[in-house]
Nucleic acid binder design. Sequence first.
RNA 1: UGACCCAUGGUGUAACGGUAGCACUACAGAUUUUGGUUCUGUCUGUUAAGGUUCGAAUCCUUAUGGGUCAACCA
Length: 556
Amino acid sequence: MSEGKSHLNFIEEIIEDDLRNGKHGGRIHTRFPPEPNGYLHIGHVKAITINFELAKKYGGKTNLRFDDTNPTTEDTEYVEGIKNDIRWLGYEWEEQALYASDYFEQLYNYAIQLIEKGLAYVDDSTAEQIAEMKKTPTEAGIESPYRSRSIEENLELFKAMRAGKFEDGSRVLRAKVDMTSPNMHMRDPVIYRIKHEHHHRTGDAWCIYPMYDFAHGQSDSLEGITHSLCSLEFTHHRPLYDWFIEKLEIFPSRQIEFARMNVTYLITSKRKLLKLVEEGIVTGWDDPRMPTIAGMRRRGYPPAALRMFCEKAGVAKRDNLIEIELLESCVREELNRTSIRAMVVTDPVKVLITNYDPAIGEELPAENNPEDPTAGERTMSFSNELYIERDDFMEDPPKGYFRLFPGGSVRLKHAYIITCNEVVKDESGQVTELRCTYIPESKSGADTSGLKVKGTLHWVDAKTAIEGEIREYDKLFTDPTPAGHDDKDVFDFINPASLNINRKARFERAVAAAKEGDSYQFMRKGYYTADRDHSENHPVFNSTVNLKESFKVQKA
RNA sequence: UGACCCAUGGUGUAACGGUAGCACUACAGAUUUUGGUUCUGUCUGUUAAGGUUCGAAUCCUUAUGGGUCAACCA
């Protein structure tokens, strides 16, 4: 049986082509190369899934390599966070994690080789002078006066740089490429700089550090990476990437660029994300409103949903802006399949069942997940005093409203049909209690009443329900592309109501057993996930995503 | 006045010279003890102009639009 068309993306086509041609003996090896200077976000999720899934699909391997060539910004704290996030996403890398810093000695030797070939030189110019001599994209650059230094002098100076003889910024090592190239990265790029700084792994062993362009390609090559996948903004680096491989005559890894993912209402600038944290607009890197992996995890987005999202978003080279609705759809799809249902009344109004004996109560069975029979069932307490959702009652309902109203009947899910007979209000006109009667013959699963009602409501037993907290999250920004305005800053679009803490909620008893990270569907409301602040006696849930609603209650 | 990349419904992504498909969204309808799920259906698309060809979203040319590149960041 045919599985239908395969719909390869352009990277898969390249890979299958390579496989057909027997390139690298059919070996596929990718890598995910984060810099350990911050937390991973939704954009990284795409890079992670592309690298790991491609290797998985073609029987290859994926390395995790920390691109730690700049000691100024990097820290081991981030290394652990990143590893944790990748594992949580469901991926495991080859062997142990690798580090560009493991190759410092080898990279240094590569630099020596380049100097010996007359392809690199030590430049004493200042950063400003170098920038000036590079000129602009539309104007050819000019050569540095130090460009013609002898190989011997370059060797001597570079060794002295390593030996710590010079101050930060006083000299750099540059590759001798082409100052007139239309590609700015080919205009004698700086490949080593002096930084007398402590490195999170190599400590004080080095005071010169390779630049990205001199570390990345060679690291790929050393690891035998066959397909080095990165985002489009590195396209201009590719000629340089290839140049070093060619001149050093090392394993030819191939760089392939894809468009990074943009999602409406989300930002992925590390700098701006950091500012949100620092300004206290969010509570931290793992605030459930953050587009970080840590934030999405705390929000309750399942890893499978994130993977599904990236797969559905696809891989191509054109700029894209994916609607957040696709992400939410993936989250719902996953959670609908897997999450246990519970009844939680978020804005309670009391219901008194006047014909139900206040002295007794009963335990009613309730299925845990209609999508999954193996999820079993639980029981819910029922008595003459209940709570229902304030939204589920209207004294003067519009047509099309099939919840509760005076004289109307609804089914209480897993329980009985009730009819509203009397509305009790306080001085301000606020409804305080609904007096109803129930139909004893209408019990769920044993309904002999023959009655049909249109509405089914969720409810909790007032006597046994637990009070707790729901943190309702909305979008952090009011604009779909907060970072896409030249005249405005992302901070001009902060949604002042992105967090609403609800302390009125009443939870059915079963949710008390939730553990941090457990997701539930609060029936007819949405998906919610137990926060780390959750406890048995005081439930605390984060709203993950609402259920789709095809009916909106119009407010008077 | 540069180089490089890109252009398919509202959004994302397929179609590899031969019926423009899938998903999300939106809107209908069916089912439903969740106004959820599921099912069915509908709406909306090849940036433009030339050229090659029996035939072009696909190949060529030009135009238009968008993006990227000038850190001792990655």
